[in-house]
Write a protein that binds this DNA or RNA. Structure first.
Lengths: 143, 143
DNA sequence: TATTGTTATACTCTATAACTATA
DNA sequence: TATAGTTATAGAGTATAACAATA
């Protein structure tokens, strides 16, 4: 294999980029496929997953890595489906705390479970699951 | 650390999912950031990267994992900027072969280079770059 | 003055369905 | 009949800028 006799630097990095982008793409495809199964867009599903406990709109925008103006619409659609409620914050009346309804908590749980149970199959992670876990934890610690 | 004394099964998988989704998200954020630097959307940038050599619209849709109808608009915008051309296929007159212009080849090259040079910094991959490479190759082989 | 959330706007991506022209 | 590509349509995400209420 050519992989063993690369020259340190660009060539190896280029392959890494391809592999990582491909991995990210497959994970993305998986989570999108699961989300669609619940009639949710990826941002909507991410929002639900972010709401393990109540947070302000503000913070959700950070979690979704998008402008605050977008959160309005995303939460609107979740609220229309009875999954989320906007609660007034007593300490700061500008803030709205996002709280999952019972239906929201149930859907979030199913979503989380399905993401977990299908991912190994999707990416065929069984090969190096534990090693990958160690690596990812290491990488996250330095991120 | 708690990581060492987990019970095999769900708990570990759940952590893996979080780590993988987070990794995919950071890679996505990186490639989006680079793309935006070239005034390209992610699908547009992906299209450029897919055009190392001419391919039909058809095949680009597969590469972008989207419906063929979307490719028309994406290629339109690249063509408007003089990065891509639609060439007639002599063998099958229904087919349009997508070919990068000189400007397209140059932009593709810069894009590729910037994705490579910035990714290690973005994800702090220097930690386990080689081990990760081995793992990803392994995973891809079984995908 | 600064911040939280909303609204208005404009652009891109997305799938579905119907269409043209080829095969 | 089936396929390649386009068009029309409608819905969702995205950022920017301007706004009201509150701090």
């Amino acid at each position: 294999m050519d992989a063993d006799r690369h020259i340190a630097g660009e060539p190896e990095t280029a392959e890494m980029v391809e592999l990582l982008l491909d991995l990210a793409d497959r994970i993305r495809a998986h989570s999108e496929s699961v989300s669609v199964g619940f009639d949710l867009s990826v941002p909507q599903a991410t929002a639900l997953l972010s709401l393990e406990r109540p947070i302000p709109m503000n913070e959700l925008a950070t979690a979704l890595r998008c402008d605050a103006s977008n959160v309005t619409g995303i939460v609107d659609r979740l609220e229309d489906r009875g999954l989320v409620e906007r609660h007034m914050d007593q300490a700061d009346r500008r803030v709205k705390q996002l709280v999952l309804t019972q239906a929201g908590r149930e859907l979030r749980s199913e979503l989380h479970q399905q993401l977990c149970s299908d991912l190994p199959t999707a990416a065929d992670l069984t090969v190096g699951l534990r090693r990958l876990g160690d690596l990812l934890r290491e990488m996250q610690a330095h991120a």
